[in-house]
Every structure is written in structure tokens, then in C-alpha cells.
Write a protein that binds this DNA or RNA. Structure first.
Length: 434
RNA sequence: UCCCUGGUAGCUCAAUGGUAGAGCACCCGGCUGUUAACCGGGUUGUUGUAGGUUCGAGCCCUACCCGGGGAGCCA
């Protein structure tokens, strides 16, 4: 007797007519007396296995009838094309082996639950269809990000997680004990990325980022993933082009390779297919006029609030690049516009449909004296930036970079309401378990 | 930190100040093509906590605890 091959559900189309074993967990079941329909989940998909009583012993058939949700089992049978089944295939089961019987009180039933309850059971919620689709898309976004930069000669150089002080000073940091001193979890790898760019030309870092802000909204996590490319000799116009090429590439990878998941999420794929260059570009001043025209009370000089960003992004069906904000509302390391010193050579990318800022970037200040003045003006400890200023002492060049939030981007692509579903185990204000 | 909103069965939610309920889950039985299967029967409660008002409080009042959403800030 030859061994029956193990097949993953996503590969069943290659095994039509063959006998295979699928290995997984019981997702749901329906029963008609002498016939069971077992929905088996194996991590790559869900397949319906049809079990006729005649093919099974009395005892096993009875056992399958009472098997609780999420019990682990393997099922052996022949693969049939079945157009009505999700995934297009079903298994005509010949035999089954129960690997472990789950407790009968699996908390996540096929009925509706609130997100608070589901988040408390996040470790189990991950098994559900929509969460599965979201996290598969996240993984594809992550790969697309790496591919985009790797294919263009960027060197991946990850920045440290432990940092000695604030990069920007304004945001709250998580302190951690670091032997005899206090260190902080990174809130941005950018300053290190600048050093890397001066060494390697085109670089990026991609890792977790920590913000101790007491933000409690559907756009915020205290721990999120950010990719931060940094390029020597790149100026603002080039940065805008890089952003639109990059973001289009990422979105189109998902459209191409994760269409089934987008359908599960009931995402309007047509909206994503439109995400190709060029993106609309709007100066801050134009954006202010747009807000005023729409009846928002807004004065030149302030930063946009979330409702302002939503209004701006809703005017377009692509991500919009808003550039040249007032320097006063932006970080100290941004270069001023020689044409108008009131504004910085920076850009925010606002995702469509009200998903908010997914990218923030700028051309960096490359003049030593200007940076020293800015650090003093922002009351930042000059000593902590000594190494950073060395980058301007030894061969300073124009350079630019940006940061993109992985979970916000994933949330926009998936059309999920909240970023917390776009990471396996979200860390939020006063939420650290599971 | 501030504003809004909520807390009733394992889950999702009902319940004019007057006997605490339904659907699902779970248990028992039925059904050879089910699609959140269906049909019949059954189990399930310190109504977030502590006080107060009242003949009587899930409901009204006060404080606190916890959740959700938003503002500021940011990706």
C-alpha cells in the first residue's frame, strides 16, 4: 500500500481525482443523519469534506458527529471539483483520524461577536476567515515592500530598537532599563537610516516602532511596523516620485496576488486597481484653500487634524501627496524650501477613503549650522545629536526619505475599520494581552 | 489629559420603576446534499462594583472600575 500524499487545501486543484490526506482543524460542520459535512481548515484554506455513513464505521461516524469545533483531525479522501464549494473543491472522505478533541466550549462561534471580546481571544480569532485574509495581505504587503527596495538596489539596514534618546523630542517614548541607564524603544529609525544612506547611498530599514502616546483611535497602535527608505542625493521632487512608484507597486502586488482575500473582505478591488502613478500633488497652501472652500475654519500655519485630512483625501480617488507644510509644525531635521523659508520640503501621503496619513517624509536639512540652530531651538540635547551632526560635517549631501506605516497601509488596502486587525497581536493603549 | 458612549446568560442583544427574556453556543433526539443547515426538546443569571432614593431598581441619583469611539499627537 502506497502512502497517501498530504495536500494543502490551497493546492487541491492539482489533485482532482486523486486520493489525498488533508490535515487541519474542524472549522464548522453540518449533519444530515447519515451524512456529515465537515468544514476542514488547514491554514491555507477551508475545504468541505463529505462523509457518508456507509464509508465509516459506526463508532467513528458517531464520533465525527459530536466532534467539537476546532478539534484537530486529518481526513483522507478523493478530491472532486465542485463549483458550488468555496475554493472550488470538496473531498469525498473515505476515512478520518482524530488528532485531538477540542473542549466543547470554543469561544468563537460562527455567529457574530464584538471586537472587544474577539480581541481578548486574539490568539483564537486569528483562525477566522477575515483575520486570515487580512494577515495574508499584510504579509504580501511586507514582501512587496522588501521586493520593491531590494530590486532597486536599496540595502536593507535595520536600525536599533534600543535608542539613547528621542529622535524628535515631541512624542512620548517607552523607557526601558538598559543596565545602569535608561534607554528608550525606538520611535523612528530615520536618523540611523540617514547615516546608512551616507554609507550605502540607497538604504531602508523595516522594523517595529514604539509610540507611548495615549492615542485611543482606530488609527493608532503603540507598537507598529514602519519601513523607512533613505536616499542620498535625492531631493523632494524625486522623493514624491519614489513614493508614488512604491505605493503603486505595493497595492498592485496585493491586487494581483491576494484578490481572493480582498473578496473575502468585501473590498472594492476596482478602487485599488486605480492606484497607479501619477498621484495628485497639493501644496499645503493649496490644501488650506481646499479646506476653506469646503467650509472648514482653518488658518494657514496650523497642522491638519484628522477630519481635515479625511476631507482632503476624499476629494481624490488616489493617495494624495501634500507637500511643503509650515516648518513650525514639522520636525527639526527637515530642510527649508529655498523659495519660501516658512515651509519645509516635506510630504505627507494621505490614503483615500479617510484612512489618514500613511506616509510622512522629507528632504533632510543638510546644513550643519542650520541643524545646530534647530536642535537648540527645539531645546533638544545637542550632545545626543553629536554623531548625527557628523553626517553634515563629513560630506553632507542633499538626501531624502520617508516612513510608511505598515498597519495603516494594510488597513487601507483591506478596507478594515481598525488598524488593530492588521497585526497579529496588537499593542494598544492599556492593551497588552494576549 | 479631555469629550462622547456603553457594561443584562459563554456570545449578540431585548426588557414604561412592577414575575429577567430571545437568538446563537452547549446537551439529547431526528434528517443521505448541507452552505452562519434545518426541525423537536433541554441546561444557562450576584443585571460591572459600592452606596443612595423608593412599598418595589436592570431601569432613577452619586462615586468608582472596565470596555468602545473620538480630540490632541502621529505612521
Amino acid at each position: 500500500m502506497t502512502a497517501v500524499p498530504h495536500a494543502y487545501v490551497e493546492d487541491l486543484h492539482r489533485h482532482v481525482g486523486q486520493v489525498v490526506t488533508v490535515k487541519g482543524w474542524l472549522y464548522n460542520k453540518r449533519s444530515s443523519g447519515k451524512l456529515h459535512f465537515l468544514q476542514l481548515r488547514d491554514g491555507t484554506g477551508v475545504v468541505q469534506c463529505v462523509c457518508f455513513k456507509g464509508n465509516f464505521g459506526e463508532e467513528l461516524f458517531k464520533q465525527l458527529d459530536t466532534l467539537p469545533q476546532e478539534s484537530a483531525l486529518t481526513i483522507t479522501g478523493s478530491v472532486k471539483a465542485e463549483p458550488r464549494a468555496p475554493g472550488g473543491h470538496e473531498i469525498d472522505a473515505q476515512t478520518a483520524a482524530i488528532v485531538s478533541v477540542a473542549q466543547a466550549d470554543y469561544p468563537i462561534t460562527p455567529k457574530e461577536h464584538g471586537t472587544g471580546f474577539l480581541m481578548e481571544h486574539r490568539h483564537l480569532w486569528l483562525r477566522s476567515r477575515k483575520q486570515h485574509a487580512i494577515l495574508r495581505i499584510r504579509a504580501r504587503v511586507q514582501k512587496a515592500i522588501r521586493d520593491f527596495f531590494d530590486d532597486r538596489g536599496f540595502i536593507c539596514m535595520d536600525a536599533p530598537i534600543f535608542t539613547p534618546s528621542a529622535c524628535e523630542g515631541t512624542t512620548t517614548l517607552f523607557p526601558v532599563e538598559y543596565f545602569d541607564e535608561t534607554a528608550f524603544l525606538t520611535q523612528s529609525g530615520q536618523l540611523y537610516a540617514e547615516a546608512n544612506a551616507m554609507a550605502f547611498g540607497k538604504t531602508y530599514c523595516f522594523g517595529p516602532t514604539f509610540r507611548a502616546e495615549k492615542s485611543k483611535t482606530r488609527r493608532h497602535l503603540t507598537e507598529f511596523w514602519m519601513v523607512e527608505p533613505e536616499v542620498a542625493y535625492l531631493e523632494l521632487d524625486g522623493l514624491l516620485e519614489l513614493i508614488e512608484q512604491f505605493l503603486s507597486y505595493v497595492v498592485q502586488c496585493v491586487v494581483k496576488d491576494r484578490r481572493a482575500e480582498l473578496v473575502v473582505l468585501e473590498r472594492d478591488v476596482a478602487k485599488l486597481e486605480k492606484i497607479v502613478p501619477p498621484f495628485p500633488r497639493l501644496s499645503y497652501s493649496d490644501a488650506v484653500d481646499l479646506l476653506k472652500g469646503a467650509g472648514h475654519a482653518f488658518e494657514w500655519g496650523g497642522d491638519f487634524g484628522a477630519p481635515d485630512e479625511t476631507l482632503i483625501s476624499e476629494k481624490f480617488d488616489k493617495p494624495v501627496l501634500v507637500h511643503r507644510y509650515p516648518a513650525a509644525v514639522k520636525a527639526f531635521y527637515m530642510k527649508r524650501d529655498p523659495q519660501d523659508p516658512r515651509v519645509a520640503l516635506c510630504v505627507d501621503c494621505l490614503a483615500p477613503e479617510g484612512y489618514g496619513e500613511i506616509i510622512g517624509g522629507s528632504q533632510r536639512a543638510d546644513d550643519l549650522a542650520f541643524l545646530e540652530e534647530q536642535i537648540a531651538h527645539h531645546k533638544l540635547p545637542m550632545e545626543a545629536f553629536k554623531w548625527y551632526l557628523d553626517l553634515r560635517r563629513y560630506g553632507s549631501v542633499p538626501h531624502s526619505g520617508f516612513g510608511l506605516g505598515l498597519e495603516r497601509t494594510t488597513a487601507w488596502i483591506c478596507g478594515t475599520h481598525h488598524v488593530r486587525e492588521c497585526i497579529a497581536f496588537p499593542r494598544m493603549l492599556e492593551k497588552i494581552t494576549p
